[in-house]
Design a protein around this nucleic acid. Structure first.
Lengths: 223, 223, 223, 223
DNA sequence: AATGAATGAGGGTTCATTCAT
DNA sequence: AATGAATGAACCCTCATTCAT
């Protein structure tokens, strides 16, 4: 919780990233409306004018923070997403492989807890269409829904619904987990939920009815 | 979205409630940190001093708004909760009764959409322990988890986990629904998710209206 | 220090006086700039509108409070002043009589301590010519100086100076007394000071040189 | 009374001191409760935010103003106090030396009239224990009483009382002097009072310049 | 005789932002 | 590359005051 130590001489690149990281933490704690240039500067060990020297304005800072948030999240799960895409190109992954993939996703997500709270808070705030992060989350969520839909398509009857359920569970469980002070084993709960939603491993993948839904790739309508 | 018309002479009781309602809307749109006394006053058709005459301070206003939010939510689902409790006292409800109950809950929750967004935003903000609504949501979520656990206990192997899953699904689906501009039929999705989580096969899955997957409830306009 | 009890039905006259008394106390505690209509009302057990109903405006309240202060002070020492004037008319009082008179004055003044602090504070504030109580204190102090001058004239060489000294001692000792938490016997100190300033009782009254000064009666110039 | 001219670029040190000086004047005129950040800022030629940039809050400004007041008063009479202390260490000062010392003190005090009124007003306000300057004046007055007691001890029977009388006379005469629009020669009056209180006859009373009683020092204009 | 409701003006304070250095 | 000084706008809040009741 303490502001990270700042060496008095940091390369500008590093300092920029450092400021954005601190901004992410602050937004997690106070919401995006609670981000104050002065406090951010204090936590980073420089003056408020110093922060604005890097970003020009608070608005710009917020936008860059959102991008950075995306980048950091991507750095954590991008490899898994690429694995998933690769498997999809080689034909549908087996249910066993799918379960393993989902398991790894959840476990990775929980290993960078400094992203969890900011993402949850921003995601909720960004429900309002005028929020600066609205578009970011809409795209992100669409891509996730799309990927999940394609992943589960071979194994379930209503892949769009199932994808929705998986994403809802991920968000909802994460929220409960954080709200309860990390009071339970979220990965175990996730695994159990995944099994419940995908049907037990015994279910034959052939039961799926892929033709009933139009599965889209990429954002349906990039507004 | 427009400020509701205000007659120049309202009974104090009504006016209080009116202010709180407008405050709830504002918090839904801007987050609790984005609540401005002046704008709230403007929307209610009185001066900022007029608002503070009723609540003394913004802090107090926020606290009372949270309570009012609880009251309004309770007014919507309390009857159902009482029904559930009554059934529990008379022995465990049948799976069919349980499904019906959960269905009604979701459908009721969606019928007062003015509560949904504020609740979602506040719930996320309140993850931070120092948030004024933190305790409120902790209690609310605990009671919900407790109730759901007792309800599903006769029908599943891990009732605590299942309750968690149901709550996670409810929050997560609601968030997707709002975020997508009410772009799908959330009640249908909920029903389907409930069946998946509670163990479908033994129940008549046909109740989930599979053909309706593409049908949306609420405005489907992509803003 | 607690607000005096207010019966729910008081005659208007009594209530007026009650409000003014409470105002005097408040001014003693916070200065005349620290008098707040709301707090005054609270202490009197009525609404702020109720206070203004009696006095019309805060300005008017302040003015009436000053007059009331004068009246209450007069009620305490007026009899003594009259005694002094009577003695003066019957020829100069003896030194013994003078000392007795001054002693009684001081002892009376200390017996209504609720007036002391307000008077001290207002007197200091009213040094500024634009203060609403400026004229009041100027007249009061001039009359006091005049009276003292005439009283001591037969016994001292420079009666104007001696009168000034006596008044200065009275104010200064009172201030020390209040400031020290009533930490010494102010009447004894006063007696001692009076003796010092007037010269011991052994001094012959004939030493006085009344002709050297113009002794005025009444306010010199009532501006 | 006019705001002193302010060059648009002042060194921060100077500006701080300038602000405090103007605050002292304002408190003298309106009382500490009448100090308004906006007006202070206007008089100093900057914005209210500019004033708060230096002091953080009005409360802090007031506290620092009191300290500054102490510092400025000390700058005027500290040398004399040190002289007195030195004389005390070398054995008690002669009565003649004591009178000279007291004379110089009063005359110095009157030479910086911009401190007089603020000190008088604050001292009276600070009688209330909760006043922010209460402690300051309690200490200051205690030290003064202590010093005077030690100074007069060799020459009078009740040195504590005599010290009290001297201090009371100083405050009281100053108040009369200011209240009368500097309408008399306060130094002469002080000298005469000192002689009276310390026991005159043994000293050469002729030093008190009897003929000057009607002569005033400072502006004699009756406003 | 007295109040509850409401307000406009002004208070201190915070905030993002600017600019000379 | 970064800051100290300063600001205007907006914020929450308090105040004396009004007015229908």
């Amino acid at each position: 919780m303490e502001p990270s130590e700042v060496s008095s001489r940091e390369s500008p690149e590093v300092r920029r990233s450092h400021i954005l990281g601190e901004a992410i933490r602050l937004v997690g704690q106070r919401g995006s409306g609670g981000l104050r240039v002065q406090e951010l500067a204090r936590r980073c060990g420089l003056s408020n004018a110093g922060v604005l020297y890097y970003f020009g304005s608070k608005e710009e800072l917020l936008l860059q923070m959102i991008q950075e948030l995306g980048r950091r999240e991507a750095a954590v799960i991008e490899p898994l997403v690429r694995t998933a895409e690769r498997e999809l190109e080689q034909g549908a992954p087996s249910k066993r492989a799918l379960l393993a993939l989902l398991h790894t996703m959840a476990s990775r997500a929980c290993q960078s807890p400094e992203l969890g709270l900011p993402l949850l808070v921003l995601q909720a705030e960004a429900l309002e269409p005028r929020h600066p992060a609205h578009r970011f989350f809409r795209n992100r969520d669409r891509m996730a829904a799309d990927l999940f839909t394609r992943l589960v398509a071979p194994h379930v009857k209503y892949p769009v619904s199932t994808a929705r359920q998986l994403l809802a569970l991920m968000t909802g469980l994460l929220q409960q987990w954080v709200g309860s002070g990390r009071g339970f084993d979220i990965v175990a709960e996730w695994d159990r939920a995944v099994v419940a939603v995908l049907g037990g491993p015994a279910v034959c993948a052939g039961e799926a009815a892929p033709g009933r839904e139009q599965i889209t790739r990429g954002a349906a309508r990039a507004e």
